[in-house]
């Protein structure tokens, strides 16, 4: 190989990495802007498109704008409830799909895949059509949002837990049973700890999906206002800088949990 070729190759090898990192940087540009704007002092003007000066006010006074924190609390409530139910039902379903044979498994796999592959606007309007047709058109609100969120989180939970279960060595459970552990003890001491990282990841995923959903929620919310709906509402008039504070906090909490989960998984030999 000539020197020229070698240099060419070196550039080639590192070029891809450099370009990849560039794409990654691009993904973080808006996040950096959100963090920066959370310190923006725009008390003087309603122009939200420029950085006017540094202030802690938005952080100190995060609940200042009318209705902002109410909407965050409502989104957290819906998110927690929907995550709880979706994770429970989804984990059970994942066990059924990986560990048990039953009729209709193939059909079930398709039905689980479909919500991930349908446009949200179609799912949202279908659900609205159902609620209206069954006489719940006037009762849209907290619980219809909850129903919708459990519905679209389920598929993601099932897929995530399934992936973890499939990679699991069934011999470990066999060994526990050979050592006279009862089925329940085996589940508690062996199966569950092994599956737990998958369940935790699924729960985190479904909370963030629920907290972030706008399109389906907006169609089925009636007068109830979730956090994304609040942002949508104020987007036309000029967004209060506190919205960026909430965005930053969400980002930091999620990063903390994800990296925590990563470290925990690494320590436990899987």
């Amino acid at each position: 190989m000539t020197t020229l070729q070698r240099t060419g190759r070196w550039i080639g090898e590192h070029l891809v990495l450099a370009l990849g990192l560039l794409v990654l940087v691009y993904m973080f540009v808006p996040i950096a802007v959100v963090m920066l704007m959370s310190f923006n002092d725009n008390s003087e003007s309603r122009n939200v498109y420029a950085f006017r000066g540094f202030t802690w006010d938005n952080w100190v006074n995060a609940c200042g704008p009318d209705g902002l924190c109410d909407s965050v609390v409502r989104s957290v409530q819906i998110g927690l409830l929907a995550t709880l139910l979706a994770t429970l039902l989804g984990t059970l379903a994942a066990f059924a799909l990986v560990r048990h044979r039953f009729r209709g498994r193939a059909a079930m796999n398709t039905i689980i895949f479909l919500p991930m592959a349908s446009p949200e606007i179609v799912m949202g309007s279908s659900l609205l059509a159902l609620f209206v047709a069954s006489g719940f058109g006037g009762h849209l609100g907290f619980w219809t949002i909850f129903i919708a969120h459990v519905m679209f989180c389920l598929s993601f939970v099932i897929v995530t837990v399934k992936a973890r279960l499939t990679g699991l060595d069934e011999n470990l459970e066999q060994a526990a049973m050979d050592l006279y552990a009862s089925e329940l003890t085996t589940f508690r001491k062996v199966t569950f700890p092994l599956v737990f990282p998958g369940v935790a990841a699924a729960a985190l995923l479904s909370f963030s999906l629920s907290f972030d959903d706008f399109i389906i929620t907006n169609l089925n919310a009636g007068q109830t206002v979730t956090f994304p709906m609040y942002v949508w509402g104020v987007a036309q008039r000029g967004v209060p800088m506190q919205v960026n504070v909430i965005g930053t906090v969400m980002f930091l909490i999620a990063m903390f949990l994800v990296i925590g989960n990563m470290i925990a998984t690494r320590k436990r030999p899987a």
């Binding site: 990654l24 993904m27 973080f28 540009v29 808006p30 996040i31 802007v33 959100v34 704007m37 939200v48 498109y49 963030s208 907290f211 972030d212 706008f214 956090f227 994304p228 942002v231 949508w232 987007a235 967004v239 919205v243 960026n244 909430i246 965005g247 930053t248 969400m250 980002f251 909490i253 999620a254 990063m255 994800v258 990296i259 990563m262």
Partner: peptide, 22 residues
């Protein structure tokens, strides 16, 4: 990989508004 998913955790709408600013 975690960094690829990370921007996800700032709300979709907030990210899009951030582009409006940029």
């Amino acid at each position: 990989l975690v960094l690829v998913v990370a921007p996800f955790f700032t709300s979709f709408l907030i990210r899009t508004l951030s582009w409006k600013l940029i």
